[in-house]
Structure formats: C-alpha cells, structure tokens
Design a protein around this nucleic acid. Sequence first.
RNA 1: GGCCCCAUCGUCUAGUGGCUUAGGACGCCGGGUUCUCAGUCCGGUAACACGGGUUCAAAUCCCGUUGGGGUCACCA
Length: 509
Amino acid sequence: MEKKDKKNVRVRFAPSPTGLFHVGSARTALFNYLYAKKNKGKVILRIEDTDRERSVKEYEEDIMRSIEWLGLGWDEGPFRQSEREEIYKKYVMDLLESKKAYYCFCNKERLEEMRNEQREKKEPPRYDGKCFSLTKEKREEKINKGEQFTIRLKISEEDVVEFDDLIRGPVKFNARDIGGDFVIAKGDFSVLYNFACVIDDYEMQITHVIRGEDHISNTPKQILIQKALDFPSSEFAHIALTLGTDKSKLSKRHGAVSISEYREKGYLPEALVNFIALLGWHPGGENEIYGLGELIEKFSLSDCQKSGAVFDIKKLDYMNGCYIRKMSTEDLAVRCIPYLADAGFIKVGFKENRYPPAYGGVRPEANYYTTDEGEIHFPKIVQIVSLYQERIKFLSEVKDLLDYFFKDELEFEKELLFWKDAGEGETEKNIDKCIEIVSSIEKWEKVAIEEVFLHEANKEKDRGRLLWPLRVALTGKKASAGPFDVAWVLGPEKTLKRLKMAKNRLKTE
RNA sequence: GGCCCCAUCGUCUAGUGGCUUAGGACGCCGGGUUCUCAGUCCGGUAACACGGGUUCAAAUCCCGUUGGGGUCACCA
C-alpha cells in the first residue's frame, strides 16, 4: 500500500531528551532510517525539547551517540525545537488572527473539576469551549490584568478525521472524541508538542511520519492543525510498540531499556540492529541474520506487524553470540579491550596524542597495552580473547572469564582440583605428571601440546583424571576454555609455575 | 469509562482461500561430540482466543464476543 511519489522521501527521528535513548525509540529510528534509505530519501534528526523542564542536555547527547553507535546516522540536523520558538509563534499568531485559535483563561482548577465531573458522568473528558465566546474587550481586559492564558485551536466537532495509515490502513476518528478545542500554546507562546511537530514536519518537508503506535491518537489533532494552517497532509505509518514481558509498553521497570546499557554490557550494534529490526517486521524467508545493507534492501512498511512485539532478551543474546562468533579474532580483541581495561586487567596507552581514543573505539596500531607484568602485545590479547569467542554472548563477560590470564595467583579451593572420586594422592600424582609433560615439550605449539597431553591422558580410562586438574590448576575455575589452549597462551613458564602452585595448594589445609 | 489499535507455539514470526498432518528461529527438554563450560550436530515439546456466518473449501474474508494494548495534560 505504499503508493504516492516516493522520489523525495524525507523522514525524521524525533526523540525527546527526557531520558536515555530507549530501545523502542531506537527501533522507530531504525524503521525510519530503513524506509528512507530504501527509497533514497533523507533522514532529519529533530530534538523535541519544547518541554524545557524535562529536557536534559546529557540525554540529547546520549540520543546522538546512541544513533551513531547503532550505525544509523542522519542527513540533516540536529534541529532543536527549543531554538525554533519564533517560527512557531508566527504560526500561532496567524491562527489567532484568522480566529482559528483563541485565548483561554480557564485555570487548571476549573479544567480539572470539569474533567472529573465528565468522568463521573462517564462522558469523555472535553473542554467546553467557554472562552471561545469571550468578547475582544473582555479578553484584553484579562490580558492587561495579567491573567494566565493558553491558546486553543478551535475545532469543529462534526468533523471526521480520516487518514490512511501505511501500516494499518484507514483509521477514522470523530472530532468530538478528541477532547474539544485543545491547547496548542502556553501563555508565553511556547508551543506544545502536537503544534511544534506539525510546524516542523511542514517546514522540514517531512513526507512520511513513521512513529510508534502510541502517537496514533495524536494524529487526528495534528491533522486538524495541518488543516487549520492549510498544510498538505503527510503520510503516516504507526508501528506497533515494543513490549516488555508483561506485554505492556517497554519501560524502565522492565529492566535494561537504554541503548547505552546494551552498549556497556557488550552487545554489538550490528546484532542489536538486526534483532530490533526483526521485532515487528519480517522480510519473509527463513534467514534471520541481516546486515544493515540487507535490511535496507528488503525493508517494507507493508511487512510490518500490526501487533506489539515483546522484547526477548534471550534471542538477542543468541544473536549477539552469532555475531561475536562471526567476526575476526582481531576485531573481537579490539572490541574486548575496553572491557579488559575496565576490569583493571590491562591499561591502554596511546602512542600518539593526536589519536585520541575514539568513542568506544580501540585502534591496535595507535595503542599499546600494559599489565601488572609489563607490556602485553596486541597479538597476545588476540590469543586470549579468541579462546572465548565461542563461549561468550556479550563482551562484558570477559571481565569475569579472563581474569586468570592477568593474575599471578589464583584463588580456588583445593578440592576443585579433584577429578570425581580422585583424592589428594592421585591428584598430586597427576599434577606431577603434567609438570613432567610440560617440561618435556620442546616446541611450545598448540598441536604439540595437545598431542602429548592427549597421548598421556588416553592411557587413563578417563581423560579427566589428568586433564581436569590441569585445567583447574591453570584457570582456577570449574568452567573455562580447554586446558591445552590455555597452556599454550599462558606459555611454558607460567604453565609450570601454576602447576607447582597447585601442587603446593594440595598441601595446605 | 470514551476513543483508537491489535489477536498463529512461552517469545519473535512464515502463512494473503485449497500446496498445511500449520513452517522457521529463540527458549525449553532429550541425545551425540567432550576433562569443564560453551559451541556444534541430531531429535523432541509447543500455537491458528471463542462463536457465528460467506464458500465446494478459512489460520486466511465478514460480523459479534472475549482478551490484550495504547491514549485521553498548560508531557512528549
């Protein structure tokens, strides 16, 4: 149903900076982006900060940082509604002059009371239009007395507002159900959301308004404003909401909802984008892994689901794991380094000051790394990290998993060294054997280590007798990467040292 | 409560009147690989909300019921 001229598609991201950038807003931004790119159109970023009290500069930064991190970007902006008040005011004055809007001096108490009464009578809350009939003299008198006022748009209650939603098809509202003449501006002529939105969409020549379903009831108001101003109507597409596990609109109480939280936990932007795109949209077919390019190529509003989609973190985890496994080990190391640094395992230095660290970005060619023991080279980090490439679902896991590569002494109960029913004696014997094997290896290479250990371990009826204590001695953990790999990365000296330390530990209480 | 939107496995979904004993993915369960944890491979569990129509034929079209959600500010 995507008809009309798509040659000059212009869409907008219009978040308001009243909180950290949310996965729901990110999904809306994504759909806008995909639609625009698919149709060779432009994306305009507009910060909706007409509510000064609730708008926070840091959140605005978070919005832009998050959008960029996701790889989405925009073509024009950022525009800020707080910087466009003169423009809005001009339109308010026009409306006032043409009598399509009027001053209202009703105070909040009266409004509140009226609403309560209507509610009790089970009527829909609605402004009764009292101030519309105020005479010019009366009005000026009140203004001169300094009475507070608002400006309301006069609507005709018989009107039927219809629009053809690109996702849902025709949607119809009776004007009498939208609550009467509604406020478009406050006493200082600062305008409200619906009004600013319509003016901006017009001035920025937005062709397609793609937004969350929660805005569907704002649409008739906006269309009424468009009509009052003789603006052409834009196309609307209301995408279904992102839901929490209880099926209500996703919000803070559902847990992590901001893009920055996901970034910090170590989700990859490409995985997050892939996952979010598939919430409420499906290109058909059985593939589920798509890069941004493919997403753009396949995107269509008509393939969007009409019902809300629950944000299922388990599936995101799975997808993130897929993306982690898919990337090169070098790339993985680059992405893990900030987490290793954060855990205090390594320190990141910069060879040249003119290459300041990019946001979240590490560049092996411009950095050097140190541990408590001195410099550690990038290839070594690659080795370490690659042992966990198949094991982690998100990057921050390396903080808990890789500690033993950066510690000299490991903390663990000696009983952890015991394989099944093996006691102290047998365990000591096996550790001795490991020491012997390690000492005998001439070329410290992955395959060689594995071969000789396996050869020895196969003599036992159960490989674990030899390999379990080896692994625990090297890692101090009951779950870890394979012992040969760990030994190889650790190097012969450290391997030997840890085996000896494990042996000593057996003798302690 | 008014208005609006929606309705296929627990979750994301395929399905656009016959190809469907409803397909895939995540999760979950079982098994293989295995020193552990992952990963990987194989197998399994599980859904068309209900009731009426229309039709030779309905998950698919229509109506109703029920259920869920959104929204009703001098917030966005």
